[in-house]
């Protein structure tokens, strides 16, 4: 395969996401300009200008009309997907760490960092109610006590009903969206959870953790089902919608890359069989750890964004599509 390198960011990529139909890739980085690209040929459609700090998270709604970004400048912005104009800005007290549209795109959620004496919080807004966005007065607010571990990753779960959060201490929690009550909790990992991605049907989700593992969980019960072990921190993991495969991306922490010996091949995307938990392949390319990766919704390509500031779009060769795991 000949990967397409997307060079629209000057700093390391923080998150990438495909839209539902997979024709667009949204990418955000530690610079203040999120980008959107056509996945087919790597053509840049545009940039969303207006943030003043590192953009930590990006999401797009199901019919690609609105885009949501959360940044370290203590704002979360809602954009028009077609024109790239900022529709509304939500001010927060601390940096926005993760954000997302609900399945119906009627609600948005965002989580903030625990810094400067402010607690880590989850906000839920009803996008249909313009007053909420204007006043910044949320539909639901969950405050996590300062003594507790902060949220590092969060997604919507169970058809607009729950929010699933991954914490710095490796814990997983389920919050009910309407009441803000904690429904379920599970000690999923020993260290920080860097990324959570649901499977195509939303029955499972995969977590990527600093404790060198990625795990597959049941969405309803938070029961760990499978563990994929590596020998380095995992920054992102994605479940193939086409095969029983998962892909893991990671590598040494960016801060330790220059101080440890150069071991090439630590920054490749690694493919595991979803059920047998066995690694069967890898793809090289990035010059630093992979920070975010995602399968195309059709499963025939995937993209990865790295610490090197590049997004690489990989269209699988026929050899991958023909590959059958022997057992």
């Amino acid at each position: 395969m000949k990967p397409i390198m997307l060079h629209g960011h000057e700093r390391s990529i923080t998150q990438i996401k495909y839209n539902r139909e997979g024709d667009l890739i949204y990418s955000c980085a530690k610079d203040s300009q999120p980008n959107v690209w056509y996945s087919l040929n790597g053509e840049r459609l545009g940039t969303f200008d207006g943030h003043n700090g590192a953009v930590w998270c990006i999401d797009v709604d199901w019919n690609t009309t609105k885009v949501l970004t959360g940044a370290a400048d203590n704002t979360c912005k809602l954009w028009d997907a077609q024109t790239g104009q900022c529709v509304s800005t939500l001010e927060t007290k601390t940096a926005v760490r993760s954000c997302g549209f609900s399945f119906s795109a009627n609600y948005i959620m965002l989580t903030t960092d625990k810094t400067m004496g402010h607690p880590c919080e989850i906000f839920i807004f009803d996008v249909r109610d313009g007053g909420q966005l204007l006043s910044g007065d949320p539909l639901q607010k969950v405050s996590i006590p300062i003594s507790d571990s902060k949220i590092t990753s969060a997604i919507w779960a169970g058809l607009d009903e729950n929010i699933l959060t991954g914490h710095e201490n490796g814990e997983l929690r389920q919050y009910e969206m309407k009441t803000g009550d904690m429904l379920n909790t599970s000690k999923g990992h020993n260290k920080q959870i860097n990324d959570i991605q649901p499977s195509k049907d939303g029955m499972f989700f995969i977590t990527a953790s600093k404790d060198f593992t990625a795990k597959l969980f049941d969405m309803e019960t938070l029961e760990p089902l499978k563990t994929y072990k590596t020998e380095r921190p995992v920054n992102s993991a994605s479940i193939s919608p086409l095969f029983d495969h998962v892909v893991l991306g990671g590598g040494q922490e960016a801060m330790s890359v220059t101080t440890t010996s150069t071991r090439i091949g630590k920054f490749d995307a690694r493919f595991f069989h979803e059920i047998f938990e066995e690694e069967y392949g890898s793809v090289k390319g990035h010059f630093g750890p992979i920070n975010s990766l995602s399968f195309h919704p059709d499963g025939k390509s995937y993209s990865s964004g790295g610490e090197d500031g590049y997004v690489r779009v990989h269209y699988f060769d026929q050899t991958y599509l023909d590959f059958r795991f022997e057992y």
């Binding site: 397409i4 997307l6 060079h7 790597g42 840049r44």
Partner: peptide, 28 residues
């Protein structure tokens, strides 16, 4: 196109979109 890509001509802009060299998935 919008934002920084507003003035880009149709088609991929070679300064942003680079076709990298052929790589292969390594099967273990």
């Amino acid at each position: 196109k919008f934002g920084a890509a507003e003035r880009d001509p149709p088609g991929p802009n070679p300064s942003n979109t680079i076709l990298s060299e052929e790589i292969f998935m390594q099967f273990v």
